[in-house]
């Protein structure tokens, strides 16, 4: 048993897994950054109640929230002229943005409407009120659900193995395939 474990710990296997870890981290990092930007935008759009922007945001959020991530990853892989790792990151970003959008909207909703009236009566514009008064307060409420969602993103990167991207899970399966019979 010890010999087999030693075989697993060989340098090229360690490097192999480290590559997987790096891909996992890169996909999750990009997904978190971009989905936060796009999600905030979507959340504010939906919250704004603007006849067109709110509707666009709602359609976007509901369509992406109702689809399995695995399906999006496959669909994007097969219909976009992108490398698998990029189409996977894009699918994850667009999917996560829909969820972030709902978290942002929830956060904004939790801020007392009275704050709006107070700020507007002080001569603040809509955007100034949003930027300086409402969004910072909402952000504080959003931190726990956002953290949870971003942890989920790191976990969800394992889905991109389905299109052959060798992230951590994929590398693990390959090693299992090579050394499984000795276990």
């Amino acid at each position: 048993m010890m010999e087999e474990l030693a075989a697993l710990a060989q340098w090229h296997n360690v490097r192999f897994m480290a590559e997987g870890l790096w891909i996992t981290l890169r996909i999750s990092g990009l997904t978190i950054a971009f989905s936060f930007i796009l999600g905030t935008l979507l959340g504010v759009m939906r919250y704004s109640g603007h006849w067109l922007l709110a509707r666009i945001a709602a359609v976007y959020i509901e369509s992406f929230r109702a689809s399995p991530l695995i399906l999006l990853i496959l669909l994007f892989r097969f219909t976009m002229p992108l490398k698998p790792v990029n189409s996977g990151t894009l699918a994850m970003t667009l999917f996560t943005a829909a969820i972030v959008g709902e978290i942002v909207r929830g956060g904004l909703n939790s801020v007392d409407k009275g704050q709006w009236e107070a700020a507007r009566s002080q001569g603040f514009t809509w955007w100034q009120t949003m930027q300086h008064i409402v969004l910072p307060q909402a952000l504080r409420k959003m931190i726990p659900p956002l953290t949870g969602q971003f942890i989920t993103v790191v976990k969800d990167t394992s889905y991109v193995w389905v299109v052959g991207v060798q992230e951590l899970t994929g590398k693990g399966v390959i090693i299992l395939g090579q050394h499984g019979s000795t276990l």
Partner: peptide, 18 residues
Amino acid sequence: QNTPLVTQVFFLYYALPH
């Protein structure tokens, strides 16, 4: 909550038989 579903399912599927 801190491990991927894929890993958990792969564990049940590929590792438990060993």
